[in-house]
Lab assay of single mutants.
Amino acid sequence: DEETLERIAKELKEKGWTLIVNGKLITDAREALKWLLEEEERR
């Protein structure tokens, strides 16, 4: 759910983690959240 996604995005940002999505590096939590939401919609 959205709360979980926001928590994940926040944790990613705090830890300075990066996500690699389709070979693209995502360092911004907002971008990561946007991607996660798009993935949820596809299901």
Rank of each mutant, 00 (worst) to 15 (best):
D1R: 11
D1L: 15
D1P: 09
D1E: 10
D1N: 10
D1T: 12
E2M: 14
E2L: 11
E2Q: 09
E3Q: 08
T4W: 15
T4V: 11
T4F: 13
T4H: 06
T4C: 15
T4P: 03
L5T: 02
L5Q: 02
L5V: 04
L5Y: 07
L5D: 02
E6R: 11
E6I: 12
E6G: 09
R7P: 01
R7F: 05
I8A: 05
I8L: 10
I8N: 01
I8C: 15
I8V: 02
A9H: 04
A9G: 04
A9C: 15
K10S: 09
K10H: 08
K10G: 03
K10M: 06
K10P: 01
E11Q: 12
E11T: 09
E11W: 15
E11M: 12
L12S: 03
L12R: 01
L12T: 03
L12A: 05
K13I: 13
K13P: 03
K13T: 12
K13F: 14
E14M: 02
E14P: 00
K15Q: 07
K15F: 13
K15A: 07
K15I: 11
K15D: 10
G16K: 06
G16W: 12
G16E: 06
W17D: 02
W17K: 02
W17Q: 02
T18N: 08
T18V: 14
L19Q: 04
L19Y: 01
I20R: 00
I20A: 01
V21D: 01
V21F: 10
N22I: 15
N22A: 11
N22L: 14
N22T: 10
G23H: 00
G23F: 11
K24F: 11
K24I: 13
L25F: 09
L25D: 01
L25S: 03
T27H: 13
T27Q: 09
T27Y: 11
D28N: 07
D28R: 13
D28I: 14
A29D: 01
A29C: 15
R30I: 15
R30T: 09
R30L: 13
E31V: 06
E31T: 02
E31L: 07
E31P: 00
E31D: 06
E31S: 06
A32H: 01
L33G: 00
L33E: 00
L33I: 06
L33P: 00
K34S: 07
K34I: 08
K34T: 02
K34E: 10
K34R: 11
K34G: 02
W35H: 10
W35L: 08
W35I: 07
L36M: 04
L36F: 08
L36G: 00
L36E: 00
E38A: 09
E38H: 06
E39Q: 09
E40F: 15
E40W: 15
E41I: 13
E41D: 06
E41H: 08
E41C: 14
R42N: 04
R42A: 04
R42S: 07
R42H: 05
R42I: 07
R42K: 08
R43E: 05
